[in-house]
Nucleic acid binder design. Sequence first.
DNA 1: ATTTATTTACGAAAATGTTCGTAGATAAAT
DNA 2: ATTTATCTACGAACATTTTCGTAAATAAAT
Lengths: 125, 125
Amino acid sequence: MEPIKPTESELQILQVLWSLGQASVRQVNDELSKVRDIGYTTTLKLLQIMFEKKIVSRIEEGRYHLYEAAITEEATQQFLVDKFVDTAFRGSAMKLVMQTLGNHQASKEELDEIKKLIAQIEQNA
Amino acid sequence: MEPIKPTESELQILQVLWSLGQASVRQVNDELSKVRDIGYTTTLKLLQIMFEKKIVSRIEEGRYHLYEAAITEEATQQFLVDKFVDTAFRGSAMKLVMQTLGNHQASKEELDEIKKLIAQIEQNA
DNA sequence: ATTTATTTACGAAAATGTTCGTAGATAAAT
DNA sequence: ATTTATCTACGAACATTTTCGTAAATAAAT
């Protein structure tokens, strides 16, 4: 696995692809348009660039293309968190955890899940 | 507080300033040079730009300038986490927490601190 | 006193990312 | 059949960020 560094726009598109699974340029553009102003050919160009970079794959379905994310959401998040911890938290992942926990609403269920995860980590320690 | 959006390079410089407190261009450049290749005038220019944007303040000390971060590390992290959760975790802060907890080494002390924080959140719920 | 080093300011090149217009091909609509 | 719509490819304009060279001022060294 090479370290892929998607740009801001590319990430937005990946999000759409991760949620749609497989999609035409039109579909991606429609989704993206809900979030921000973007022209059809801009979306197309972005997908073409991402295809060259192999961040997405595509299959020709008749005259048009169906695109699909070529990297998983988890792997990408992992990579981004690592980088983020470095650049914004001077390397301290736990500071990031604390900061996020403290400043964002968490449901009871989520807190329970986190507690469970912590218990698990403690067991394996 | 306006939403400040430091660039990658600006963040690196902020980190140096947060750790040094107050520093000359020379000092900042020396620190930054440990991390990556960068010319003196590049560092200078970056600091000048950041000064215009008011992300850093400076005082004239004789012939040279002493720079200081004008925004706190915490506020910046807060802002960056919010943005990061949106762009990389489709809005789910807790997914970010779980992902980070699961993939980074945490000491017993850190885990205890996190548990304490969770207990506190549950109390105030 | 003259040279050398260090500092700030500034402009502009280089690098990177984003946006879109235009052209050509094919399908759909009239 | 002709027009209209939709698709891909591609180049180039635009925007943003990064980098550094050069000049002017001042201090330090010789």
